[in-house]
Write a protein that binds this DNA or RNA. Sequence first.
DNA 1: CTGAAAGCGCTTACAG
DNA 2: CTGAAAGCGCTTACAG
Lengths: 334, 334
Amino acid sequence: MHDVARRAQVSLKTVSRVVNREPGVSPALTHRVEEAVAALGYRPDDRARRLRSSARQTGTIGFVLIDVANPFFSSLLRGIEDVARAKGYLVLSGSTDGATEREEQLIDAFLERRVDGLIVVPSGQAVETLLREIDRGSPLVLVDIELDTDAPIDLVRSDHYGGARLATQHLIDRGHRHIAFLGDDRSVFSAEQRLRGYEDTMRSAGLDPSLEQKITGTHTADEWRTITHAIFRQPHPPTALFTAQNFASMGAVAALHDLEIQHEIAVVGFDDIDLADAVDPGLTVVPQRPRELGQRAAELIFSRIEGSDSDVVREIVPHAIVARGSGEIAPAAR
Amino acid sequence: MHDVARRAQVSLKTVSRVVNREPGVSPALTHRVEEAVAALGYRPDDRARRLRSSARQTGTIGFVLIDVANPFFSSLLRGIEDVARAKGYLVLSGSTDGATEREEQLIDAFLERRVDGLIVVPSGQAVETLLREIDRGSPLVLVDIELDTDAPIDLVRSDHYGGARLATQHLIDRGHRHIAFLGDDRSVFSAEQRLRGYEDTMRSAGLDPSLEQKITGTHTADEWRTITHAIFRQPHPPTALFTAQNFASMGAVAALHDLEIQHEIAVVGFDDIDLADAVDPGLTVVPQRPRELGQRAAELIFSRIEGSDSDVVREIVPHAIVARGSGEIAPAAR
DNA sequence: CTGAAAGCGCTTACAG
DNA sequence: CTGAAAGCGCTTACAG
């Protein structure tokens, strides 16, 4: 900037005025400054500008998630970006891989950079740390988690419980009485919710979920495939599966094809997957809407950034079922 | 910081020393400052710090991509993040949706924030703009594109041409002489490369690609499904498909299942997809390794940020074929 | 219409 | 071991 001012033979203030298109600079000076800017390749330093500026915002929001390589989270990020773009904001993001330590590091790093708002998909139980952060005055929105406390924290999440009820009821309605549950580790909030939805729905229908196979844990699609094979080697296998997680759906579908029982065993999955439409039968699912979740979370954070002091928002995005065939198979006569 | 200094009854410099763990502060003062920091919830402002600091870096790199919601790009982002994390860097990212204007906006915004390096997956032909940027001294790495110019720009990309040759040769080796090509619009560099690989391999085998169906364009999986139906309504359909794009693979597989010819028509896809393993037959593919591409791009940008002035790097990541069944089907006797 | 001085929150270079 | 002054690149508040 100094160089520009010297080259154009004007003061720093005049350069500032031209760069910011403030009115009231004579055409001659404007022209000289613009020439110097172009010649020197000058580009204002956004950080310095905002440091002194009355708009003390950084124009950046931070997004802490579990793993961007997972399409669920990358769609969330996309939803956030959609809204951020419209507001002229940029998005910093980072994956925690579910590690609390990494989560704290990321939040710290974002806060030191003075992000105007923070959207976090908490990994595990580190919510207390988050609660401390909000006291520091950074707007915070949590995604895909529930809080027992009535702490004043905004929240957006899928209705995992309701979605699981939908899926389970769908199978019960087709006559299934033995439905296995395959899902993520119970320490994951959404997994726990889905399991509860399954159990409650079973009980409402007069079925005893404690008699059914409920397999929970963090596994790859291949591991789920092996697990599903094991399920059907047992004497009294289920007639239907509720695969409450992406990889479980993939593994289970693969195993049913291996065993050539894909037309006999019903499956409803949680969350959509590629090719769900291409397999035979198509996979019936309760899809999530991660992009919309992200958009809602971003809208919320911006309303707080812009000063909204409305009551705490706890938004729960509902689900619907997409029937494609696998969920509509009736139990085989035995 | 001012408040901390006053509360601890020390100078700004002493606060700075304690916060940065510089040696040579008496335990008593250290204690007082730490107490004040905790009580006030003080967190240093990274921007101000770096403004004056000798390390003029921002500790941030920018990543401009087409669409994070696309797993290919989110895996790229993850690879970049892997390396950035190890270096203590944060990643700003933004989707262009292939719009040149948005691309320029993002690059501009990143540069105004003084990112230390820029990784870009160019959308379309706006490479000249990028060339201008590098003159401004920001390290730049391009991903998944080729440059005709010998401009000094580092580059990392998949070997689309070689991968397409592999896929096509695989089908020819199984006896196919009529292989249709389904791929993305030719304006996309990778799509063009894959088409060229297909054509050259056909010709090398004495086959005439101009006689085959080559369908290119940007379509959804459903549209590709419809297109594939149309292909097999024609009098002399191909015996094999090279689906050179994700959605094309999904749509084609779905259509072959619809028509119940999935065991007669061979398919090799470019890029892996969920459930590729679950369909019957499993989908033979030439997978990309986006996370590794991202890691390589990030390693390159950091070597430049750290001052490497080695020659231009143009790294081409090779492919291998993953045979799962669909690509090993012999042409049906007619 | 234009510019000199002060200040944003921190660090550097120096003095005591 | 500690601190007062100057400065990073810009904007604000003011004067001319």
